[in-house]
Amino acid sequence: MTLERLREIVYEGLWNNNQALVALLGLCPMLAVTNNAINGLGLGIATLVVLVVSNVLVSLIRAHVPREVRIPIFIGIIATAVTIIDMVMDAYMHTLHGILGIFIPLIVTNCVILGRAEAFASRNPVLESAVDGLAMGIGFLIVLVVLGGMRELLAQGTLLDQAELLFGPTAKAWTLHLTDNPHGVLLAALPPGAFLGLGILVAIKQWIELRREERLHAQPQAENMPSHEPEKA
């Protein structure tokens, strides 16, 4: 895998084809658990691990799986990875596991994971599939954390509240109290606030893309403009 190919895969996962902002996949867990940044981070890490593991395994067996049964086999691989992650989180992050609840097992049905297994891992080598899973997972995780942070800040006036659930007792001091009023915008904590927050993130991405296209179109025009400097004799 060349460096250029690596950059292309990473750029696709983090920005150009971010599954949360472009394809709008995985909306159910994304909107349900992102009432704070730590919940979003916990679900994002679980999804990231499942994406990488499933992509690698699917790529390893892609030449030996009949086309007619590939989807059930892919789902079986994803379900196995999700079950392991679910058990690990229940053992070591029991409280956070209880908060995320059913949305950890529901990672099996996340279209982001099955979509990458079918669209990329089943058609590319192991290393490229691993990088794709990592990039797509990080892109999805960033959206979860940013959306959760936005909602937490507006609703509670804090950031990284309950960080100890993910990082242990020492992380209790990480909570940032940015306002003195603990009762913020109630809408941000409710499901409609999640839709509005995601809409804002999608709009920001589209605005950045439009600005980038405008600059790219303006650059050739500026280069082709005739010079008005007098010619030297």
Results as ranks from 00 to 15, higher is better:
W15P: 02
L21R: 09
M89P: 09
V56Q: 05
N18I: 03
H64Q: 05
V33Q: 14
I78E: 10
R70G: 05
R5A: 12
N35D: 11
N36A: 06
I85N: 14
V56K: 07
I38P: 10
S59K: 01
V53I: 15
A32W: 09
L60S: 04
T95I: 13
V88N: 00
L6Y: 14
L31N: 07
A91T: 04
R62F: 07
V10I: 15
N39K: 01
E12Q: 13
N16M: 01
V50Y: 13
S59M: 08
I71R: 07
N18W: 01
V82D: 12
L24S: 09
I85T: 14
L31T: 04
G44A: 02
I45Y: 12
N36D: 14
V50Q: 12
G76T: 00
P72K: 03
L96T: 06
I9Y: 09
T95S: 12
I77N: 00
N18G: 03
L60C: 03
G13V: 03
A23P: 01
V53K: 11
N39H: 07
S54K: 03
I84H: 05
G26W: 08
M30K: 04
L48P: 04
Y11F: 11
M89K: 04
V49I: 15
E8D: 13
E68Y: 10
L21S: 06
A91M: 04
I71T: 11
N17A: 12
T83K: 13
M89I: 03
V49T: 14
G76H: 04
A23E: 03
I78Q: 05
A91L: 11
G98C: 10
I77T: 04
M30R: 04
I9G: 03
L25S: 08
R5V: 00
I38L: 11
L27G: 05
V33W: 08
L21Y: 00
V88I: 15
L60Q: 05
I85W: 13
V49M: 15
L31Q: 06
I38D: 08
L25E: 08
T83W: 15
V65T: 11
I71H: 12
F74H: 11
R70N: 05
N35W: 12
R5I: 01
H97S: 10
V10H: 10
R62E: 07
G44M: 02
L48T: 05
V22D: 09
N17D: 07
M89F: 15
N35L: 01
G101N: 00
D86S: 13
D90C: 03
Y11L: 12
M87V: 02
T83R: 06
M93H: 15
I73A: 04
G40N: 07
V69E: 00
L27S: 01
A79P: 10
I75R: 09
H64C: 02
Y11I: 02
V82P: 14
A63E: 08
L60I: 06
I9A: 08
L100P: 11
A23S: 10
P66W: 01
S59P: 04
T47L: 15
V10E: 02
D86F: 13
R70S: 14
V56G: 06
L100D: 04
I71A: 15
Q19P: 02
A32Q: 01
L14H: 03
L14N: 08
T95D: 13
L25Y: 08
A46Y: 10
I99L: 15
L21D: 02
S59Y: 11
A81E: 13
I75F: 14
